[in-house]
Design a protein around this nucleic acid. Structure first.
Length: 637
DNA sequence: GTTTAGGATTCG
């Protein structure tokens, strides 16, 4: 019989927390730093949780006892905190350990057994807690995206941060600021691991075992604050290393061949949860790791083709039979910010291989967008003629008034008014020296349609007048009085205005025809720009985004052109200049590709389809690359 | 009953 009455804990939803109180909370781990020794006297762990109210809470957990801090192993774990103090810091609510703080941690996976991890000897755990955990699991499964940072060594790429679950095989002192860990997870890396030079005698571990595993082991250098943690690790233990950094390095061997190898660094500091934890044998991920280690393929050694010299020109290509591409089929890989709309069957080719090959050729690549040009949206939107392929600038609005004025006749010719095609009306402005503006309303079977279905022809209007009319009427065509008929203006001016969109024609490829041809248009209600252009003898120009992407996949860098009407960005280039929402979307996409203030390692990968081709510029031959059949991934828009 | 850190990658 217990002398202590059963305590009924009340759990405060995260949207009801108030500064100065001490509460009990439940939450799903959204971010965490595994416990590390602070600069004070205690261990520290920073944990951000979220619950069904979708409110986040960052908690600072301190304890002189490492074991007393929550045993969180991955994002998505569920925690219960008792006696958490709520306080305000920089206008944000935060949680901090208070006297008597205690925690339980559970796996976040739906269906996994609900077993609390804790160092507390006595703790309260009822069916109510069981239900709390399961409810949070269900909520998280549909509201939080699973962590993508946990990778197997076979899926690791150059230039990335990831979390590794592995077994420790060897360790060695390197110097005061760095320490070497030799680990494996049963998988082979796409490039052989670098080998950190150490004095033979300092390596602790089964050297013959390590030698037998050869390229299944990787070398990790850990720095600064992680050194003393690494030093204390036991050989054979199972580890999770958080935010491990990969870097591709080319090494020159004695034979002057260039070898590519992959470096693994655990940098100093605790940013992004950098650190090492020892996983218990009971951990379900350790079970899986053990299976992978048992079934690891020790027979086939790392192929030499990944470490070949630059003089050879035989990087594996999709055609080389039976070979596996450099970036082997990716299993649990991270999502790409762009995806292919075709050619998914193609294997990926590293940029260093593309740069060595002859043109023209097509490739599937995976790379990061190191930088792009132009930075300004207004400079990236151009007009493209699909017939002669010329590119021209979009006329600036300031110049359009001048173009319209220069193009128009002084006075509308009343002889040309009121025909079978249109009814005419003329206005005289009171100021501006009695400027005359004629508007011709195009009829549908002899009858004037509703204004929102009506095409009007305008003579002598200014740009702002045209915009006002385009807002009210379906379409506007600026015209002038000719000898026998109304005529289109010079193609420096737009030939059609619909809403805020100005449609231009190609001066080179168009041969203007009479306005009367509008009569031949069957559908006089929708006034499709391409149909209007066709009957008027105009080859319409397309609005396109023209950009240069500097792509980098860690093996090489190349510049590729992108010309896009709407397929790549999923934003119509024709409308973006007149639409704030589209402009914001575009900005978001570019900031997602190249997050400002971040290093390239944190950028997302882009999967692209690339074509190489030759351009002759005078006597100079140049190889160019263009992006095709690629689109921004739906989940990132 | 203090401080630690207060998420936001290194530059080896």
């Amino acid at each position: 019989m217990s002398l202590i009455p059963a305590t009924h804990y009340i759990y405060t939803p995260l949207n009801q927390l108030k500064g100065g109180t001490i509460v009990n909370v439940y939450g799903v781990v959204k971010f965490f730093k595994p416990p590390y020794l602070s600069k004070g006297t205690d261990y520290c762990s920073v944990v951000t949780i979220v619950d069904q109210t979708n409110v986040k809470l960052t908690c600072l957990l301190f304890s002189g006892n490492y074991e007393a801090l929550p045993k969180i192993y991955k994002i998505g774990d569920i925690v219960r905190f008792h006696r958490l103090k709520i306080q305000e810091y920089k206008k944000e609510t935060q949680g901090i350990t208070s006297s008597g703080f205690a925690s339980l941690t559970f796996e976040g996976t739906l269906g996994a057994p609900v077993i609390p991890r804790t160092s507390s000897k006595y703790f309260n755990f009822s069916t109510k807690d069981h239900k709390m955990v399961e409810a949070l699991r269900v909520w998280a499964s549909s509201h939080l995206s699973p962590s993508s940072a946990l990778l197997k060594l076979c899926d690791v790429q150059p230039m990335q941060y990831f979390d590794l679950t592995c077994q420790l095989l060897g360790k060695a002192e390197v110097d005061g600021a760095s320490f070497l860990l030799k680990v494996w997870d049963g998988n082979r890396t796409p490039f052989p691991s670098w080998r950190v030079l150490i004095q033979d005698l300092v390596l602790e571990g089964d050297i013959s075992h390590i030698h037998r595993l050869q390229n299944l082991t990787i070398d990790i250098l850990v720095y600064d604050n992680h050194v003393q943690v690494a030093r204390s690790l036991k050989i054979g233990s199972f580890l999770r290393i958080y935010s491990l950094h990969t870097k591709l390095q080319s090494v020159h061997s004695e034979s002057q061949a260039t070898l590519l190898c992959l470096e693994f660094h655990l940098h100093g500091g605790t940013s992004y949860g950098r650190g090492i934890t020892v996983l218990p044998e009971s951990n379900s991920d350790v079970d899986q790791l053990k299976k992978a280690l048992e079934s690891a393929d020790l027979t086939s050694q790392h192929s030499d083709r990944f470490c070949q010299s630059e003089h050879e020109d035989s990087f594996p290509t999709p055609s080389s039979s039976g070979s596996v591409s450099l970036y082997e089929v990716e299993r649990c890989q991270q999502l790409s910010a762009t995806i292919l709309t075709d050619h998914q069957y193609l294997e990926k080719t590293p940029l260093c291989a593309i740069l060595k090959q002859k043109t023209p050729k097509q490739y599937r690549i995976r790379a990061k967008l190191r930088s792009y040009k132009p930075k300004s949206l207004y400079q990236s939107v151009k007009l493209h003629c699909p017939k002669c392929h010329s590119l021209q600038e979009v006329p600036q609005e300031g110049n359009l008034d001048i173009i319209l004025k220069e193009n128009a006749t002084k006075t509308p010719d009343t002889k040309l008014h009121n025909t079978l095609l249109y009814d005419s009306k003329i206005w005289t402005t009171e100021e501006q020296g009695g400027r005359k503006v004629a508007v011709h309303f195009v009829k549908h079977n002899g009858i004037l349609p509703l204004s929102n279905e009506c095409l009007i022809l305008i003579e002598g209007g200014t740009l702002s007048e045209i915009y006002k009319l385009a807002n009210k009427f379906h379409s506007v065509i600026p015209v002038k009085s000719g000898q026998e008929d109304l005529e289109l203006l010079d193609l420096s001016a737009p030939f059609l205005i619909q809403g805020k969109i100005l449609h231009y024609g190609c001066k080179q490829c168009s041969s203007l025809r009479s306005i009367q041809n509008l009569n031949s248009l069957v559908d006089k209600i929708s006034w499709i720009p391409s149909s209007v252009a066709e009957v008027l003898g105009i080859v319409p120009l397309q609005y396109v985004f023209v950009m240069t992407f500097t792509l980098d996949d860690g093996t090489g860098v190349l510049e590729a052109y992108l010309m896009d009407t709407d397929k790549f960005f999923q934003i119509p280039a024709s409308e973006i200049l007149a639409d704030d929402d589209f402009q914001r979307s575009m900005e978001m996409i570019m900031d997602m590709f190249c997050p400002p203030g971040r290093k390239i390692d944190a950028y997302p990968w882009l999967e692209c389809f690339l074509k190489s081709y030759n351009v002759t510029n005078g006597t100079e031959q140049q190889v160019c690359y263009q992006i095709f059949d690629t689109t921004v991934g739906e989940d990132v828009i």
